[in-house]
Design a protein around this nucleic acid. Structure first.
Lengths: 348, 348
DNA sequence: GAAAGTCACGAAAACGTTTGCGTGTTAAAA
DNA sequence: TTTTAACACGCAAACGTTTTCGTGACTTTC
């Protein structure tokens, strides 16, 4: 088992200096054709590759970007990663991942671990705990050290950086408008407590759609779930609450849910109560998940284009990393990704 | 925007040498209490953190592991990543990902990109193309340079390295035995072409179960799909083939599918043909996916414990990385993860 | 034949660490 | 007072690159 070969070894073997080897490999015209040929042949034979770490140290540039997400076993986030990886690779970067597992402290630790020279910039989506605690010092400290950050999806206006978000408001609004134009009269909203920005915006979209069509929103038709619970417990409670809602308001004929699970649960409860989807009740979910496509009936959704978000985030970040000169007044942009209503069987 | 502070800057500021600073920060007893206090206070004030890249170069150790997988938007693989990340983080390592997208060349490129000093070892699952082409030179070259590799799930006996695999054979066998004990008489198998090792083993498990119960396997009950097709095309063809199979053999009362999609499609076709699951036909899938739990009826599956696979892989790799002295004759182990039959509504 | 120019290469610094060893100062022991 | 020891610190090398600059040996030019 032989270690990777270095310039020094080639130099010693060929009885020239390290700098000569380095230059020869780059076809520098300082070096004679003879030497170049000799060095390159030797390098090829031993499969020489420059050591990335040494290059990173020298250039103060790692060509690696860090991505911090709350959870990886989740279609939305894994699609984002795919988008990031795609662009990063194309532009010569590697991707290193950190999972916060929705925890504030893990997010901080992960960021500190990577911020010490391992990467050139961050792409991240905030953990729920961070959103709840509203403690953003680690973002600002990181940025103050000259490390650019791009936030996606779960963002917060208090932080000044590039952002890539989904047009949650219009996505939700259009979904609800669709339900209205499909003759729904009593449209329920199933959402989370709105400390997560996206949830709040989706709720606003729902309200706006109703208002635009002169429908008076009814607070009783809005179900707010606490999503910090354990998954299984959450699911049971969710179904119970939905059932209670449906029973209290038998005339509900449309449901807009802010995520896949909620929408699916709504369909499940409806089915259980003998209601037909989409004839008795139509359902739309906000999601990029895989369940929607394969459920029966398949679920009409507001697609978020997660992969595109990843791609845009990566481009934004790398652009910033590679911007030679800092502009006077730093300019941050927010890219808004349009949603798309994917109609399936759960709506007419 | 100030750069990260370095030892050199602290040294200059405090008018001591770099080595004194370094030692002071480590509480070396070579350094006086006074100086230690002074240095540490200053370091804390400026939030000094040693530069990872410099450490990596010096120690010839990056504390980073690379994971190469064919696809990330896939529950199995993202769960494996979660497991890897969990263990890696606990043991002080970062994780860098590379996606091969089932392509041989992307796999090679990704590995070369990371093998040049960026990481200490690989965890990987082979791409379909690599399995088809049976070209394994890049694995051996990487290992020859002293970079350990752990392969998981999709492995091949020609390569000598640590491996973590699922007990595909017994997983499949037990699933089929379950169907048999549930009174199924005609059990169909829906599988892929068997260039992927796991597919082959699952087929063997199916056959073994039948044999053990003295049931003669019928070739006509085995449906082999070509899974190199485009996703949508694949899906349509799949359903058509399943329908053909069911119509040709009306007495099929059990189905074992080697993955989630196949199992779901079987249920969908059955439903379409007016068959009730599980009363007319029982279905079991081999998968760790999320669809199974939320389908109607929910799907009985052979769980692969993907996260555990990731954890074991990471432990195996890090153990090898940290093994100070190479043993005379290198010893490789293969860890077999037991499957678990998760019974849901698609079986009686 | 001397000055100028070209060619081909090497020395050294720099990136940010860690660490073995050398050394000057002071205090304790002889 | 002299020797020894402890103390507190600095020097320098090393990790593997890249790149600027210097230099000796030729070749060209007048």
């Amino acid at each position: 088992m032989k270690r990777k070969i270095t310039l020094k070894q080639i130099a010693r073997e060929l009885d020239v200096s390290i700098s000569t080897v380095s230059k020869a490999l780059k076809n520098s015209k300082e070096i004679s054709a003879d030497t170049i040929q000799k060095v390159q042949a030797f390098a090829k034979l031993y499969n020489y590759r420059p050591n990335n770490i040494a290059l990173s140290l020298k250039n103060r540039k790692t060509n690696t970007i860090g991505i911090i997400i709350p959870e990886i076993v989740h279609h939305f986030f894994s699609k984002v990663i795919r988008g990031v990886e795609l662009v990063a690779n194309k532009r010569g970067y590697n991707v290193i991942i950190g999972l916060s597992n929705e925890s504030f402290s893990k997010e901080v630790i992960n960021m500190e671990m990577l911020a010490n020279g391992s990467i050139d910039g961050f792409i991240l989506s905030m953990s729920k705990e961070t959103l709840l605690q509203q403690d953003y010092h680690h973002y600002n400290e990181t940025m103050n050290q000259g490390m650019p950050i791009v936030m996606f999806d779960r963002v917060v206006s208090e932080i000044n950086c590039d952002k890539v978000i989904v047009d949650d408001f219009n996505g939700a609004k259009n979904a609800v408008l669709k339900l209205i134009s499909n003759k729904c009269k009593q449209i329920a909203l199933i959402t989370t407590r709105d400390y997560v920005s996206v949830g709040k915006l989706r709720t606003q979209g729902y309200l706006e759609a109703l208002q635009e069509k002169n429908i008076t929103p009814q607070a009783e038709l809005i179900l707010k779930m606490d999503d910090t619970l354990d998954y299984e417990v959450h699911l049971e409670k969710l179904e119970a609450e939905i059932e209670k809602l449906f029973k209290a308001h038998k005339n509900i004929d449309g449901v807009f849910a802010v995520n896949e699970l909620y929408a699916l649960s709504a369909m499940k409860v409806a089915k259980k109560m003998g209601l037909n989807v989409p004839n008795d009740i139509q359902v739309i979910g906000f999601t990029d998940g895989v369940l929607s496509k394969h459920s029966t009936p398949s679920l009409t959704t507001v697609s978020q284009h997660a992969q595109l978000m990843g791609e845009r985030s990566a481009d934004l970040l790398i652009d910033k990393i590679e911007a030679e000169f800092e502009v006077e007044e730093e300019q941050f942009q927010t890219v808004v990704i349009n949603t798309e209503l994917v109609e399936r069987e759960s709506t007419k």
